[in-house]
Structures are given as C-alpha cells and as structure tokens.
C-alpha cells in the first residue's frame, strides 16, 4: 500500500553465532501509527527495530521504507543514508552506546550537524530541545557522568533534535523512575498526536497499553504471533502466558482507566 512507510515481506535474519532469528517475517507500518513490539527477553524485538532503522539488513525477503527497497548497498550512499536517518530516529536501549561525546550540548548537536543543517539552525534546535526537556543545566556536563534517567533524556534529545518522522525506541522506560516514565509517555503521546510514527519495543504491558494503539507480539521463538489492537492482545491472557509476558498467576483488575497486569509478589 502506498501509505506504508515500512514494509517487510518474507524477511529472514540471523546472527552468525546464534542461528536463524527471523524467517518469513511480514510487517507493514503506516505513517502516524503507534506500534508496540511486545515480547520476552531474547524474542528479537531489538533486532527487528534495528532492521527498521537499517542498522541490520535482512538476509532474505524485502524491506521497503518510504516506498524504496532498502539494501546495505543503498545505505552506503552517504546522501541517501543521511536522508534516511533524518526521517527515522532510533533511541537505543543502552544509553551508554548512544552517548559518545564528552559534552551534552555536543551530543545533541551531533546528529543535525552530520545531517548538514546550518550551524545557526543547529544552535537554535539544540537550545530549544534543552529547554523543552528541562535539561539546560546539564548542557556542559559529560554525558557519562549523568544518572540513568538523565542519560535517557539526553539520548532522546539527541534524536528528537533531528525531528524525525518516525521515532523508534528500544525499551524507552527501562531504568526510568515513575515520574520520568510518565513524562516520557506524555511526550510520545503528544508527538504521535501531531503525526509522528512511534514504534517502541518493551515488555512493559502498562506502557504498551498507555502509549500505543497497535501491538505486535513476538514469541520466544521469534515469530509474530499477534498483530492487532493493543487492548485485544492485553485481554488475551493465554497469548501473554504463551509468549512469557505474564505468568499464569497474573491478573488484571479494574476495567476503565486502571487496567494493568502484574504478578503476585
């Protein structure tokens, strides 16, 4: 379909050391979607996100983004690659991997500068982002000395400053305190409401429920076993047990605004 921004058809992928991860994977993402990849540890969520971000390439099958076939060879074209990453932003699970400069300001400015934005525009954007995320006081600090939550904010700022159409986040709330989690959810909801496509990978069912409309559930055998509305997936207790997202003693309580799944302590 023409309005699909991502389209994976019969994709297979494997890591040399670990054998086949995906085979025959099909997926399509429309502009403005908010999608959550749900799956237990090791189900392949991060790998799938990296395929969408053209950091990993399918061994077989086709991966189309914005109507073009994405291949390793095509991504070697600097102009194409820069243009691609201007549209697709990726927030890594491990903030330490993403924050590689020795000053927060430079870290945030890195992306737009590589994209070729004029220096004045970069300065305006970086300062706006610092203000928006309320992290101005951190701008001269080395990112590696910050707390986990602060690092996550900087990593997010470093991607938001590029203003990508698609925002891909790997375990965005991992390591965040409840207030920061709520702040992040509000921000992502707002971005989605203005037309940004949001794709997150998590095993946090509450986050999936609050943030996204559509969910893809990955089994521990790296297969998409569900693709549909998030409420439908969260109501399917058997499915969640099967993919190891909850155990059989988990339950939901409340039926209106306060639906969640948790395990007995």
């Amino acid at each position: 379909m023409a309005d699909n921004i991502f389209e994976l058809q019969q994709v297979s992928f494997s890591y040399r050391s670990e054998g086949s991860l995906f085979s025959g994977l099909n997926l399509s993402v429309k502009a403005g979607d908010s999608i959550c990849l749900l799956g237990a540890n090791g189900s392949g969520k991060s790998t799938l996100l990296k395929i969408l971000c053209a950091l990993n390439y399918p061994e077989n099958g086709s991966f189309k983004a914005f109507g073009r076939d994405i291949t390793e060879k095509l991504m070697e074209d600097d102009n194409f690659s820069k243009n691609y990453y201007r549209q697709v932003g990726f927030v890594f699970q491990n903030s330490d991997a993403q924050l590689f400069t020795s000053r927060v300001w430079d870290e945030i400015a890195f992306g737009p500068l590589q994209m070729g934005l004029p220096a004045d525009e970069v300065k305006i954007r970086v300062n706006d982002i610092l203000r928006m995320l309320n992290i101005e006081h951190l701008m001269d600090r080395p990112p590696y000395r910050l707390s986990g939550g602060e690092k996550k904010k900087i990593a997010l700022a470093a991607v938001l400053v590029i203003n990508p159409e698609v925002l891909i986040l790997d375990e965005p709330t991992a390591g965040l305190d409840p207030r920061s989690q709520r702040w992040l959810v509000e921000l992502l909801l707002q971005l989605n409401s203005i037309g940004r496509t949001i794709i997150i990978a998590t095993h946090d069912l509450n986050l999936a429920h609050t943030l996204t409309k559509r969910t893809l559930v990955l089994s521990e055998y790296h297969q998409v076993v569900f693709d549909g509305p998030v409420e439908e997936a969260l109501d399917n207790k058997d499915l969640l047990i099967k993919v190891n997202l909850i155990d059989e003693f988990s339950h939901t309580h409340g039926h209106t605004e306060h639906v969640h799944v948790y395990t007995h302590g």
């Binding site: 950091l55 600097d78 990453y85 890195f110 500068l113 590589q114 070729g116 470093a158």
Partner: peptide, 15 residues
C-alpha cells in the same frame, strides 16, 4: 550503529 543512526558517514562535522 548509534553514530550511523544519527547521520555519521565517516566524516565528523562540528561547529
């Protein structure tokens, strides 16, 4: 990968 995902193509641009 994180550098690539932010447009780095082997030549770093700075202000």
């Amino acid at each position: 990968q994180a550098m690539t995902a932010r447009g780095y193509t082997g030549e770093a641009v700075t202000i």
